[in-house]
Design a binder for these strands. Structure first.
Lengths: 340, 340
DNA sequence: CTGTTAGCGCCTTCAT
DNA sequence: ATGAAGGCGCTAACAG
């Protein structure tokens, strides 16, 4: 049997309460006593039973999730997954609160972060926007000892404890590698549709994409980026413009959301059939993949991201390590042949 | 607060012991009493706190994992991941025993299953081999109420409770889709290297691959399959033969393990550069991908498979549901651009 | 500063 | 067939 608090109390010649104080770094223990207890912990190889501890504490984890109120399938999926997680709250001892904020708006996000901080949750997750004020708000929360996890879009340089999302530079590189191979040997223009260059994930995807095309496929020229604000109609107009202005267009990389617009524009011009790579598997992109309108979809598993964010927030709140490999969010590549 | 056993005892007008008996379907409760308790459970919406139950029971989960003793990187990785899981045994209340059996040998596997059954573990995981005797052995174990999970290679039609592995038909289809697009428009021969047609996962990959090539890329002809027994030297000879006999070879699909041999054969003939798709990301395939010797690698995450198998065995042992999406093992596609 | 004691939610003898 | 009481490993008042 593994040692318990009793064993280490005996071994150190102290009471349970003292052991507990040492275990939980609470004050009121003489340095010498503390040392004896720590020695006992060390020699007996004690590891605390987290389940028992949580039971005794009646611990629940109040978490606040701040999500953009974007009207696109990916964000809807993220919301859904979070609701599923909330349904499991009872058995997972979590208590999750969702707060919606307008997308791409630093000011609103900063205000919401401040408000979330006031409720003193056990952890906060947010889809970050690249902004100094947001960074400062995150740092202030972290300074209070509340772990912050960025979700989907990161904010490096801030004091967030973890980023639950994909490596977007690698995602962009992957798109570049695929489009390059699919067009093997041909030369021409490639269009890029983004949501907003304000969010880091979109910028990083573009960087990765450009890097690969420049290095490995010099025949493929990237046209100036069009922004679709992750909005179906804006995106549709952008892609329609792209196709009208560049008749010989070889490929399109849609690195944001709002793919409904992309697909509508493609359908409107059946005479042009560029190689198309998009992000996020939704009902729309799935159908377009099956029909051959889109050639590949890069996806991030929203369910995995949500579950990972929760696991990590719990671990950080408890100060225990995470299984790093389990928390790496992978880039799924879907062709019409491996749709789940 | 969620209701506890006390609440339902009060509500039903019985003692805790009786509630417990009903909860755990133990005998010694009058039908009428049982009904009252069950009604209380229903109306209060009681769900048992598994952590507390496990604490009280001092529950541990003795699991037996039966793995082939194959000398290839993927199986080494699988072993490693299992050892990592064993290192977490203390906090996860598991007690994992590994048994090795010779690969591709039904008789040895059947004997090992019988032996494992005798130790009455809380669950058994195995890399299945397609065989009637194996199926019968699994069914016998399942009949005793011990959950069985197949790992990496499935045995449908058996009474295994779950399969922790990828959809191999989809994997083969994906390989077909990629090779077809990478060779867009060209016509010629494609070689296939398998481990053994005895294991279901290899057969399924071939089926999926053939289906896509036949349907979508009729210009690509699949040569007769060569078996490499997942052994580097046998595989090397097979691929060398393939390249020697078919000078115009356009592509190779290596759907088994033993990729060291494949890579050695490719390096020996720098004059021929077929499009190559292989399975499993290992040190060898990773290097070959970087060097451009291999064009894409389809991977199954051994860590995910092991963790999933353990989670599912626990859930089955406790009779609680699993999060289906979390247990779906994905097919990772790696190009040189998205190596992790 | 340190120890005693009473739980957390559940299970398990041992009585009745 | 049912109940009372003690304990799993840990924490948290409340006393000294």
């Amino acid at each position: 049997m593994r040692p318990t608090v009793h064993d280490i109390a005996d071994h150190a010649g102290v009471s349970l309460a003292t052991v507990d104080r040492v275990l939980n770094r609470r004050p009121g223990v003489r340095a010498a006593t503390r040392a004896r207890v720590e020695a006992a912990i060390e020699t007996l190889g004690y590891v605390r039973d987290v389940a028992a501890a949580n039971l005794a504490k009646g611990r629940v984890y109040p978490f606040t999730f701040i999500l953009p109120s974007s009207d696109n399938s990916f964000m809807h999926g993220l919301h859904d997954e979070l609701r599923h997680a909330m349904a499991r709250s009872a058995s997972e001892r979590t208590n999750i609160r969702i707060v919606e904020v307008p997308a791409f708006e630093p000011t609103a996000l900063i205000a919401t972060l401040a408000e979330a901080r006031d409720t003193q949750p056990a952890g906060i997750a947010l889809v970050a926007v690249e902004d100094e004020g947001v960074r400062a708000a995150i740092d202030a929360i972290a300074a209070e000892g509340i772990p912050v996890v960025t979700l989907v879009s990161d904010l490096p340089g801030s004091r967030r404890a973890h980023y639950a999302g994909v490596d977007n530079i690698a995602a962009g590189r992957t798109a570049g590698g695929l489009i390059g191979r699919f067009l093997r040997g041909r030369a021409g223009k490639i269009g890029v549709l983004a949501g907003s260059m304000l969010v880091r994930d979109h910028r990083e995807r573009l960087d990765g994409f450009s890097a690969v095309l420049t290095a490995d496929y010099p025949g493929l020229a990237i046209l100036p980026v069009r922004e679709g604000r992750d909005d179906p109609e804006v995106a549709r107009a952008a892609v329609a413009g792209l196709m009208a202005e560049h008749p010989g267009l070889l490929g399109i990389y849609s690195l944001g959301a709002g793919n409904r617009g992309l697909i509508a524009a493609l359908k409107a011009r059946p005479d042009i059939r560029p190689v198309v790579i998009a992000h996020e598997l939704t009902a729309f992109t799935r159908a377009a993949l099956s029909e051959g309108l889109i050639d590949a979809v890069l996806n991030q598993d929203a369910g995995h991201e949500i579950r990972s964010a929760i696991r990590v927030l719990k671990a950080k709140a408890d100060g225990v390590p995470v299984i790093a490999a389990q928390e790496r969010i992978r880039i799924d590549i879907f062709l019409k042949d491996n749709l789940p």
